[in-house]
Each structure stands twice: as C-alpha cells, then as structure tokens.
Amino acid sequence: MASGDLGGLSEAVPARDWADGLGTDALLAILHRLDHVDVLMGADQVCRPWRRAAREEPSLWRRIAMRGNEGIARRLNRGGLACEAVRRSAGRCEAFCGEYAGDDGFLIYLSEQAPCLKSLRLISCNGVTNEGVAEAVKELPLLEELELSLCDNVGRSEVFKVVGEVCPQLKHFRLNKKLFDVTVWEKEKDVQGIASMHGLRSLQLFSNLLTNAGLETILDNCPHLESLDIRHCFNIDMDETLLVKCARIKTMRLPDDLTDDYDLEIQSPIRTYVPREPLGYVCYSDFCYNSYEDSDDDSEDDSDFYGEPSRYESDLDKYEKMLRSSMRTFLR
C-alpha cells in the first residue's frame, strides 16, 4: 500500500477557496457589477484580496453609483456611505450618481475631494438645497453632466445661473419633477437660469411648468441643443413658432409622448384647476374633494403602506447580516 493511502483512498484534498484565488483584474470586474452600497456594506468582507480590492483600488470608485429604494435609505446613513465611497476614490472620482443619498454637507465634501468630477446625478435627495448646489459647483468647473431629479428643495433661476456661469463645459442637464401641477403659479422660475447654460447638448425637463415663452427663451440661448425632452410639460403648446425653433433639434420628446422608457417616479398630472361652489370644494381634472375635510381612511392606509418597514425587511436583514461592527456607523 502506497504511503499515505488508507484502504485505497487517497488523502482528502482541502477545498480551494475560489474567491481567494482570483486576480485583481477579475475581482475588479466582479465588483464593478455591484452597486457601490453593496461593495461598502459587504463585498469587502469575503476575504483579504476582496477587502484589498474594495479599499485600495481607486479605479473601482472612479464612477460611483448608489441607487436604491427609500425604505432601505431610511435605515442607512447614505450620506456617510457616500462620503466613504468618495474617500476611497482618492481624488479620482469622475462621476457620482446618488439616490436618497447626500445633503449639502456631502456636496461640499464631494466638491473638495473630487476636483475632476464630470458627472453629478442626484435623485430624490431632499437634503440638498439651492445653497448647497451653488456652493459645490463653484469647485467643479469640469462638470459636463448635471442631474437634479425629484430633489424638492432645489429649483429657481438663481442657482442655475450660478451653474451656467461656473460650469462652462456643461453639456447635459436634467431637472425632473414627480408631478405636473397647473395650480402652481410660478411657471418660468427655472427658465433664465437654464438659458444661461449656453453649451447644452441635451436637456430634460420632465413635469416642468414652463410655457411657450420660456421654452423659446431656452432655445434662443442654447444654440447647440440636440436633444430636448419636455414630456409632461403641459403648459407647452407646440405652435408654428416653436416647431420652427425646434427644427434643428435631432431628438425631441413632446409633452404627451409616451413615458415607457422614463426611469423615475411619475405621479398623475394635475392639468386643470376650476374652483366651484360651495367654497372649500376644489376640482382637479376629473375629481373633486373638500379641502376643509381630513383625508379618509383609505388614503391614510395608502401612505402607511409606502412607509411600512416590513416591505423591505428582507433587504435590510441582508445588509445588517453582512455589516461588520466597524461599519455599523452607517446604520441610522
């Protein structure tokens, strides 16, 4: 019997840890497929090479994407996670996309730590204000793309004029709202600021309140515009004057065009406003309600449904189980 052979059976070969044997290029190829929240909250706990790749390879953090749903965002310190992601980029971050992530403080940190930033996309970041955006973009002269979608506390020409002045290379701008509401009186509050972005190639203004006059102002001041998306901008009436001005635009999406390819939240538009007697009743489109009465039980149940933590329980458990004690600072 050969040495080491027990009853004709060779010694058991220890199982190989495939994760530990991957090269850096292969590891980075895997990590690049993950949202950066997942990288921060668990991928660097697999083994030492994974941890080294997640923490010490700035190329992984050159383009940061932190998307997610609101339920998880309530439990995580998304601003802290965003700061850590930017820190790991070691000054090489060129693009940041954050959903439910970041506030004015984070924007200032980003502008200081990512001087080469070319793309900034903020979605549903209600902690971001006009003041924060105006201050941050002053340190981001290389910015070519800016998105401020569903950010309820950002708007008005004053802040966009600052963007147009300090970001001369800006080519793409998205300013999208959840809801078109004809009852809001300030129709052109964003127009003059957007019109100051003279180098724009593409512009998306979903559910904006601008009128024909406002759109004409933008078209006259943005001569390089090639793509224009004004879906759900129901104050716009594409008359002959506008059609002539838009003839040079290669890609055009009109107010009533389909929204199947739109990737953000949409609420049903309020397109008409007709007050009726008795006083206190208001009609929006095809329905009326008493503005003096509280909402009924059904509407309260609907709002509770969207905030119900149990809907996200499995996702939260996943993050908490993977979370090291040193990372628990990212939990609220």
Score class of each variant (00 low, 15 high):
K138T: 01
Q204A: 04
N212F: 04
P141E: 00
R156N: 12
I194R: 01
C151E: 03
R156E: 14
V182R: 11
V166G: 00
L203W: 04
K171D: 00
S207C: 15
Q169L: 11
Q192M: 09
D181Y: 07
L142Y: 10
S149R: 02
F173N: 04
E165P: 01
R174C: 15
L209W: 01
V162I: 10
N153Q: 08
C151V: 08
L205F: 06
Q169Y: 06
L203M: 08
K161L: 09
G155C: 10
L142G: 03
E147G: 15
L205P: 14
W185T: 09
F173K: 05
F173Y: 10
F206C: 14
F180S: 12
D190Y: 00
S157L: 03
Q192C: 06
V162C: 07
E145C: 15
S202H: 03
K171R: 14
A136M: 13
T183P: 01
T217Q: 07
I194K: 04
V159Q: 05
L179Q: 14
L215P: 05
H198K: 14
Q204T: 15
E186P: 01
L142N: 14
L205I: 12
T211P: 08
K178W: 03
V159S: 12
V163M: 08
P141R: 00
N153P: 06
S202K: 04
R156H: 10
S149L: 05
K187W: 06
D181S: 11
L175P: 06
E145H: 06
A195I: 08
K161C: 15
F180W: 05
E139N: 15
V191G: 12
G155I: 05
L148M: 12
V162P: 12
W185A: 13
L205A: 06
R201L: 14
L170Y: 05
H172N: 13
E144D: 07
L203Y: 03
A136L: 11
H198N: 12
M197F: 04
E145A: 13
T211E: 05
V154R: 02
R156I: 00
A213R: 03
Q169D: 09
K187A: 14
E216M: 12
S202C: 08
C151M: 06
S157G: 09
V184M: 08
K187S: 14
D181Q: 06
S207M: 01
L179Y: 00
H172C: 13
V159G: 09
E139C: 15
K189F: 05
F173Q: 10
D152N: 09
N153E: 10
C167H: 00
G199R: 02
E158G: 10
F206L: 11
G155F: 00
V162R: 02
Q192K: 09
M197E: 10
E147L: 07
F180I: 10
L140I: 11
K178V: 10
R174N: 13
K189N: 09
K177R: 13
L170E: 02
S157V: 07
F160M: 13
L210F: 02
K171I: 01
E144T: 14
A213V: 06
H172T: 13
N208L: 06
W185P: 13
L175V: 10
F180Y: 15
F173T: 04
C151W: 01
R174P: 07
L200W: 07
V163L: 10
F180H: 07
G199K: 05
E144Q: 13
W185L: 08
V163G: 13
